[in-house]
């Protein structure tokens, strides 16, 4: 089967997973359904021949699952009662989405084929990546040589995340009256 067929199948799987995650009553099942959606993204990356992204997406899905389960499952959880206009709202939303989809069919006809054409920049990377950087893995060559500034920004984001969480912990420790070292 061509890649597109598999992608349609995975996309449908992910849509079903997200609807279940939204509609199910039990919070643990909802978290598991979110994990299923992330797994679908990971498999889609594998079919699109991007194993680097598939690895990172798969690992982060596990990581996010652990955090979500540890953070939310045992907490008191406010169940929202559906409003009376809920059904009308859902119907109007679905109708609007279908109308937008039908109206955009001519636009879909104009779109180029999937993955085509290769951009000029990407073609330069594919052609000269190995000779410019010497890295056999082209993804590494792009993120750490051609686009190293972006990676520097990512490192800064992670550093700020740790700073923020550490600050929260310090505030809590001061509030609880403990001055001991962690």
């Amino acid at each position: 089967m061509p890649v597109e067929t598999w992608l349609y199948f995975i996309l449908g799987f992910m849509i079903v997973g997200s609807v279940i995650a939204l509609e199910i009553r039990d919070i643990l099942s909802s978290v598991v359904a979110i994990g299923v959606v992330g797994l679908g993204v990971s498999v889609a990356f594998l079919f699109l021949q991007a194993p680097d992204l598939a690895i990172v997406q798969f690992l982060f899905e596990i990581f996010a699952m652990v955090i979500l389960i540890r953070a939310f499952v045992k907490k008191d959880y406010h169940m929202e009662t559906p409003a009376r206009v809920h059904g009308i709202l859902v119907g109007v939303s679905i109708l609007t989405l279908v109308a937008v989809l039908v109206a955009s069919i001519p636009v879909f006809r104009l779109l180029p084929a999937f993955g085509e054409p290769l951009m000029e920049t990407s073609r330069h990377y594919v052609d000269h990546g190995l000779s410019d950087t010497g890295a056999a893995n082209l993804v590494s060559a792009v993120i750490l040589d051609y686009r190293a500034y972006d990676t520097l920004g990512e490192v800064t984001v992670l550093f700020t995340a740790v700073l923020g969480t550490m600050t929260i912990l310090r505030i809590r420790r001061a509030k609880n009256g403990g001055g001991k070292d962690a």
């Binding site: 990581f63 969480t165 809590r172 509030k175 609880n176």
Partner: peptide, 18 residues
Amino acid sequence: FLVVWVLAALRTGEGGEE
């Protein structure tokens, strides 16, 4: 790992004991 460590401390309220 440090982010998860701090988040787990927040959930269980153990932040003050360390």
